[in-house]
């Protein structure tokens, strides 16, 4: 999915739209991530100012959660489930082969995810936000290839 380029004015508007909610920081970070695909360091002072928090507090929250990245993502993101239910159906071996096969694809970030809730249909993955289950090497390759 295409994300907007970082823009401080737009970021400030996004933050302002969420700032009055109780416990606003996670909704703010999700909204920024949704717009820009990441939450860069430049966002920290904007958020801190709007929510009356210290920059350290904002940075601490961003760095705590796996979802929030501080650099823009590559065009494609493949999240492979590495949790027990998918392990039980050969998920680890499939993940190892996939990592090797796609090692030189700089356009794809391959991440581990611990459970997509598809535990009776593993191995499972999410590619560019779309779920896929009952995977094998061929199906997974087809899904990745279809995206170019």
């Amino acid at each position: 999915m295409p994300f907007a380029h970082w823009n401080a004015d737009r970021a400030a508007a996004i933050v302002a739209a969420q700032a009055n909610r109780e416990g606003a920081l996670l909704p703010v970070l999700h909204a920024l991530d949704h717009a820009f695909g990441h939450v860069p360091d430049a966002a920290v002072p904007i958020i801190a100012q709007a929510l009356n928090l210290s920059r350290a507090e904002v940075h601490g929250v961003i760095s705590f959660y796996h979802d929030f990245k501080t650099t823009p993502p590559p065009p494609h993101v493949l999240k492979l489930c590495r949790a027990e239910a998918c392990q039980a159906r050969g998920g680890e071996a499939m993940a190892a082969r996939t990592l090797a096969r796609l090692a030189d694809r700089a356009d794809i970030a391959i991440e581990a995810v611990y459970c997509l809730g598809l535990c009776a249909s593993g191995p499972a993955a999410m590619f560019d936000g779309r779920l896929a289950a009952r995977l094998d090497d061929d199906r997974l390759t087809a899904i990745v290839e279809a995206a170019g």
């Binding site: 416990g23 920081l25 996670l26 970070l29 705590f64 959660y65 796996h66 995810v113 611990y114």
Partner: peptide
């Protein structure tokens, strides 16, 4: 609805509450 952000420990109720408050879980 509030969305989590990929932290397993937020399934623990007090970590979840801190997360809802906008803090580290």
């Amino acid at each position: 609805v509030r969305a989590g952000a990929g932290a397993y420990v937020c399934g623990e109720e007090t970590a979840l509450l801190d997360s809802l408050e906008g803090k580290r879980g």
